[in-house]
Nucleic acid binder design. Structure first.
Lengths: 338, 338
DNA sequence: CTGAAAGCGCTTACAG
DNA sequence: CTGAAAGCGCTTACAG
């Protein structure tokens, strides 16, 4: 009945006093309500409402030694980051999935080594209970051993090259997706199919090229293969290269949509038309596939699903379950470019 | 000299024991090193290295009642979010600037009302010391009063419509930028200049249209004004509308680059050419201005600068300084579209 | 089902 | 400059 102290935030003691119970009982209803009588529970609930009580997250974390938060660690060069909407989609998906469990997302951007050190420091320092790893490039993962040594669970987006067996991951089925795109291009009558492959130190870049090779089998012609870095400009450049080396190609499978946009620009700049002269297939189904002309036929990566599964696996790992790896199928989306 | 306890993380007590000083002294060097003798300081530093001690952030936060973290609150529909790279750039800028002070960024995405409630709860719950507000649309800010009532400092990106006087902000000079673009279009000989304006419940959309009107003065023709929502598709649609209503326009100022891409698609689909028949000026200098053909002449918004200043003002506000508002000039970037 | 008590790991006046 | 002590606000065995 005593009104809570003037200025300060009410604490658990204030609630206990108002409810006429002990601090322990208040804490019990706060942490799940088990082993509390209905009467006590009701009194506490009322007292919480009356006092406007909110749990102090730091005190709780100190007592439980759980941070109740998760890190989203992005180790990617900044250029890629802004160019590539996939990251934003992953971020949203993860944030939303975590919100369901009332767990905030701490965003850690570590594009260079100094930032990676800082991020590692932060993660192993007890600020978070686990980490969602989004770092496509190999070699940007020197911190992985340190994190796992510290016992902080982590789940990777895409196969963590070199750590496949050490940390869990969720990846799109890049290999089969690439196969399917090539198969599709053949099905519409194309016979000289080139590719602009993504970076070969990423699992996606690697697997998609492998899928392309596998599907083509004996029809693979090395001159029809060029490489980019997933950026728009690199797609444009690689396509010019391809047109020079193999001017007779009638289709090209490009490692992601953004490079596909660049490739289309290159193709059109030589007076050829898409898809009439050269059909273009992309990968991702990112906004880049839609925002421009022609719209791009592509393999859809289910990023919402991927981020959801990542969160699910991470939460499970934090709860002590064994980690796991999963692969999720991609889906052909037909549009104007092929 | 005693080795630290086996499994547990070393605490400040372990350090004190190894260094042969009291806990208070260790804490003093941890928190700045003032009022500590050189000898003691050296001993503590050595002990920290020896034990591998790391401060427990929760314990520190509980004792100081400071969270040592800052929220980045994004209240924007998800579609916009992925379409618009500006958010990513702001995010990066803020993250980098905060990292300098060793302050992590907690990302809060609140696209709908339920998420906003949750975010407000989180912010006023003591999880963070301040918030960077990125929410262009008015009406998405019902939570502002509650946050300021809780005494949590906030700095807005762009003018917080309806709260101009209550919370600090950093905004690009949209009005002058729009004026300059129109002036430029005139300087290259265009006389019938239309505009695709952004959403009129955002300070940017509002001010840019105002700048357009102001610069044109008596030459404003209402039929040459259409509206979009900053998305690609809306730019395309609005441009078609404009071409119907005012087929003789020879230039168009579009409220952002992404809509400008859509407008270009619309223009070219009618057989007209950019910039020969219709010159197109955008706003932002986002990747969309570069990733496509033709590249877009635009007004550069200095987002790195904006995010830096936001962080600076927020940190100052957290430190108890009075809040402030600042406006930063934009810059014309000439490319192919005009 | 409930209360009293110890403990989580730090910081910060207070004396000296 | 330094140590002893109180305090930050919670949780969780432990008895009952």
């Amino acid at each position: 009945m005593t009104p809570p102290p003037a200025k300060k935030r009410p604490t658990i003691d204030d609630v206990a006093r108002v409810a006429g119970v002990s601090r322990g009982t208040v804490s019990r209803v706060l942490t799940g309500g088990h082993w509390v009588s209905p009467d006590a529970s009701a009194a506490v609930t009322a007292a919480i409402a009356e006092t406007g009580y909110r749990v102090n997250p730091h005190a709780r974390s100190l007592a439980t030694s759980k941070a109740n938060s998760v890190a989203f660690l992005l180790t990617e060069s900044y250029e890629r980051l802004f160019d590539d909407p996939n990251f934003a989609i992953l971020l949203r998906g993860a944030s939303t999935a975590l919100a369901q469990s009332d767990i905030p997302l701490v965003l850690l951007m570590a594009g260079n080594e100094a930032e990676q050190r800082r991020a590692t420091e932060f993660i192993t320092g007890g600020h978070v209970d686990g980490v969602l790893l989004v770092s496509s490039h190999q070699g940007r993962q020197d911190f992985l051993p340190e994190i796992s040594r510290a016992g902080v669970p982590a789940i990777s987006c895409g196969i963590p090259l070199g750590f496949e067996r050490k940390i869990g991951y969720v990846a799109a089925d890049d290999f089969s997706g690439a196969q399917e795109m090539v198969r599709y291009l053949r099905s519409i009558g194309r016979t000289r199919i080139g590719t602009v492959a993504g970076p070969q130190d990423t699992s996606g870049g690697l697997s998609r090229l492998r899928g392309y090779r596998d599907e083509l089998g004996d029809d693979v012609v090395e001159d029809r293969i060029a490489y980019g870095d997933y950026g728009f400009a690199s797609g444009e450049r690689a396509m010019h290269e391809l047109l020079e080396r193999a001017p007779d190609i009638d289709a090209v499978f490009v490692g992601n949509d953004l490079m596909a946009r660049g490739a289309i620009k290159a193709i059109e700049s030589t007076g050829r038309r898409v898809p009439e002269d050269i059909a273009v297939g992309g990968f991702d189904d990112s906004p880049a596939a839609l925002d421009g002309s022609p719209t791009i036929t592509t393999m859809r990566q289910p990023f919402e699903r991927i981020s959801q599964e990542m969160v699910r696996l991470l939460l499970a790992a934090i709860a002590g379950e064994a980690t796991a790896a999963m692969t999720i199928p991609t889906q052909l989306v037909r549009r104007e470019s092929a």
